[in-house]
Design a protein around this nucleic acid. Structure first.
Lengths: 156, 156
DNA sequence: CTTGATGCAAATAGTTTGCAGGCTC
DNA sequence: GAGCCTGCAAACTATTTGCATCAAG
């Protein structure tokens, strides 16, 4: 409600409203995900979190991500790999995914909201969210000599 | 049925061209996937295939799907669940996914090809494929009384 | 205090892989 | 006949769950 959009405070409020307890782990997980731009996996997130919360367990990260996602506070990003990636729910946006390094980058495409959807969709059900995923090869991978791990790639 | 290009024959040709051997399992897997409209998982496909090929193993299904996908003959559909779903590569199309039953339905949206992409994408890399995923609740789930398993839902 | 959240470890589930025999080419 | 493909079983990896303990409300 403040003019100052403190995301952490907003998150706390959202938790309370949802009946979720505000724990240090949840705050840190959210803070970390909020700061991230690379759509980390649970494991990656866990690794980063251990710097601040050395005792946090991977299970808690998984559990918290699932909880927050079910409350719409974060999104599970679809990737075609067998890995779930997450992001904080922000304004509508879309994703660029590199086939090479698996990196995911956001982009905005407001124009698409203007495009009329096919009629047939009306008879399918109620639309909720529209997400465009564009696949390709990022410059980091194709431009450079060999298959480099792109800026935001996540390779083991 | 005849006058049209026989998809199975085309598939065989594609396999040969790719240096893949044409085995009965591959033919049946492709045929089954071609006939399917519900983007089955490997396991679902395996179950269906056993009617015709009682001895086919789940591993073969997985392996074949991976092989065909790597040759672009089929697509792995991104779903946000932790399940991979597949479809035969056809003309460009998009997906409607029901949050309730998980059912996936195709739709065409040729208009989208006309919409100019944001400039920023040019500096990211080379675009390959554009895929729109629309989430919502299908009529089968919202319209009816309780959470029905939609026509093409895949619940265990 | 009461209830829900965390950590730890063990359990699952989907998917992948090694190996020996079979079937395409 | 040579090599790729299949089936079987065992291995992996990501993710989930049971339970005792601990912290938030």
């Amino acid at each position: 409600m403040e003019s100052k959009p403190n995301p952490l405070a907003a998150f706390e409020a959202a938790c309370r409203k949802a009946g979720l307890k505000v724990t240090q782990q949840r705050l840190e997980i959210y803070r970390e995900l909020f700061a991230a731009t690379d759509h980390p996996t649970a494991e990656v997130l866990h690794h980063r979190l251990r710097e601040k919360l050395p005792t946090i367990s991977l299970d808690t990260v998984y559990r918290t991500l699932a909880t927050l996602a079910s409350h719409g506070l974060i999104n599970r990003v679809e990737t075609a790999e067998s890995l779930s990636r997450f992001e904080v729910t922000r304004t509508p946006h879309h994703h660029l995914i590199c086939r090479e390094c698996g990196g995911i980058v956001d982009f905005n495409w407001p124009l698409i909201e203007r495009v009329k959807l096919p009629e047939e969709i009306g008879s399918w059900g109620t639309i909720d969210r529209k997400s465009v995923v564009i696949y390709g090869i990022c410059d980091g991978c194709s431009g450079s000599r060999k298959g480099r791990k792109g800026a935001s790639g996540t390779r083991k």
